[in-house]
Design a protein around this nucleic acid. Structure first.
Lengths: 186, 186
DNA sequence: GACTAAATGAACAGATCGGTACACCTTGCT
DNA sequence: AGCAAGGTGTACCGATCTGTTCATTTAGTC
């Protein structure tokens, strides 16, 4: 056996929740798509909510690892890495499995601020902010906190625009805007 | 009778869907919250989907009317109106009923591109884009299409940031970024 | 081969889902 | 008074939801 059944389940569940939504995906659908029995599911996770939390955790880890790896491959200087972030976004948008951001979707479907799922999405965004802030500070740019949030807003906006499909190259347009902001803060 | 029962229903349904989500809101909950009988609901709308479409239509009209009115009250020159858009966003974010954007949430919950609900959200975003583009062109700024999309991305990003609650003044920060982009295109 | 741990299939429970049927009750108009 | 339109309340349908039960099967280890 190459892989833990549990990990297979979380991976498949992540894909299905991402593609199909959380409320719209029933446990029976996960049984059908993952090939894992419902009995095993509830042996590993005591509820659907627990499975969603695990799926979000896997998503966060996979996306973080992939994006930081790609950014480092594309650029080495902090300022260039800030811009490379948008190239990586563009690669993501062009994947045919792209369906907006899983955390934005999760926070939409679980809007109560103190819901565990909502909280996990907020924490993921905080982590993203800390990453961008570290790059901004390493690049010695002015007003680092505000600039980091503005760059993050451009990323969020690019994701939403890519999702609505009203632009051919949202990542490229966001990158140009980011360049203007970074140049102004140099 | 001051108001049509149908209109009362759509208004209440809009609020409940916006606050609670679409899949998570059942017709029985709408009966409880609106005080309108289920029989009447299905006399006016043949399905939940039809009611959601009507609620989105009302939202689009209300938000469009309110935001354009506020923008015109705050500024008269096109360039100033582009910036005033972000002040209006800030007013919206500070409402205690603010829960992200109803159309972003709807497109998340109905991700299939050819679903009527998804299509209605895409059309709403196209309308927003046309509005911003008209202002950009009236202000005689360079690269109007790209600039309009970049400004729209800042708005989308501000909405998401406001929703995640990681910033005290997302609209103000987005406005400063927008100002930099507009100045660079003058 | 015997033991153990993990996974399976299928039936089931109780609740809720979207949607319908039907008898009754207001209300306004003539 | 009589009529018609629109609204109400309740019970109900079949499907689907999350979650459970249980007997059986598989796979690895001593």
């Amino acid at each position: 056996m190459r892989k833990n059944k549990r990990d297979e389940l979380v991976e498949k569940a992540m894909e299905t929740f991402y593609r199909n939504g959380f409320h719209a995906t029933g446990m029976d659908m996960l049984v059908a798509e993952s090939g894992i029995s419902k009995t095993s599911m509830y042996k590993h996770f005591k509820s659907k909510e627990d499975l969603i939390l695990a799926a979000l955790g896997l998503r966060e880890q996979q996306f973080h690892d992939w994006s930081t790896k790609r950014v480092c491959e594309l650029a080495s200087e902090p300022k260039d890495q800030l811009l490379a972030l948008f190239d990586v976004l563009g690669e993501w948008f062009r994947e045919d499995t792209f369906k907006s951001c899983m955390f934005i979707k999760a926070s939409s479907e679980y809007p109560e601020p103190d819901h565990p799922i909502h909280q996990q999405t907020v924490e993921q965004r905080n982590t993203m902010y800390q990453g961008v802030l570290a790059l901004v500070e390493a690049a010695h740019l002015k007003n680092p906190e505000a600039l980091a949030r503005q760059l993050l807003m451009l990323q969020e906006g690019a994701i939403i625009t890519a999702h609505f499909g009203n632009s051919d190259d949202p990542a490229g347009e966001a990158k140009k805007a980011a360049k203007a902001l970074i140049d102004a803060a140099s």
